[in-house]
Amino acid sequence: MSLRNRWAAFWHAPTSARNLAAARALLAGTALWIVLSRVDLPGLLSFPPEVWAGVSPARNARFFLGAPLLVERLLYGALHLALLAATFGVFPRVACFLGGLLLYHFAPFETIIRSPNPYLRGFTIPTLGLLILSFTRGTDALQWLPRRAAGTPPTLPGWPLRLIQVLFCQIYFFAGYAKLVTSGLAWPTVENVRRYLLGLNQGLATHPVSSLGYAVAELPWVCAFLGWAGLAFEFLFPLVLFSRMARLLLLPLALLFHAGNALLFRIFFPNIFLLLLFVDWDRPGSAS
């Protein structure tokens, strides 16, 4: 098969309207969950001016920051409405577009006093994903309002879902890549994993001595396994894009991976529900 045909087969194979609608609900629902869990995010503007002093005018311009608190609160309310509408398919294309743009504006609030890069706080994939969905006519799939006169077509362009899946896979691949580029093969060693287990629990746990991380840190072979197996998992995860077998194996492993990170390292992954982007909702026992 030529490269052009491979490209077309990967990106332009159709998907069902139900899969696109599920992706829309997952992305918007995830963002809505986090937005409702940061209900006073614009309130950061009421922190002392010293806290904001390091945010340059160019950085403010990059994220369209600088409006008064009242305006930001109104926009944050609009974000809630847009995400709610996108989740339930009410004017979904417009809702996805507005939701994506408003997430681009509000997501940096979580870290901007330190960094303009609010990744792993839960908004990155929904920001890109909702915008990507708004870029396709298929986004109106399974909309509740307004009612479609022509009914829902059975298949729609598959590229939006594919692109979102690729971006999601990059979370794992580049997490592994960053470890090797920054620390090399010293990263998955017993000593390094043990220090992370101890240090993160010392810094974050109420009673580090009785934490699971402390218990595991005393087992060198488990530390080595966590280091090497975690790294291997991160590099192998993109196989879910190409192989049904890989999806059946790696998606449950991803759940285990994140549960382990939460229990042992006290690191929470707010996009856990987005693993469902790989489920084929026409055959829920399978994977898209």
Binding site: P118, L128, S183, R195
Partner: peptide, 13 residues
Amino acid sequence: WPFTNWALVHSLA
């Protein structure tokens, strides 16, 4: 961002 590097606990502890 929103195109990002996804680095997490990537340095040596």
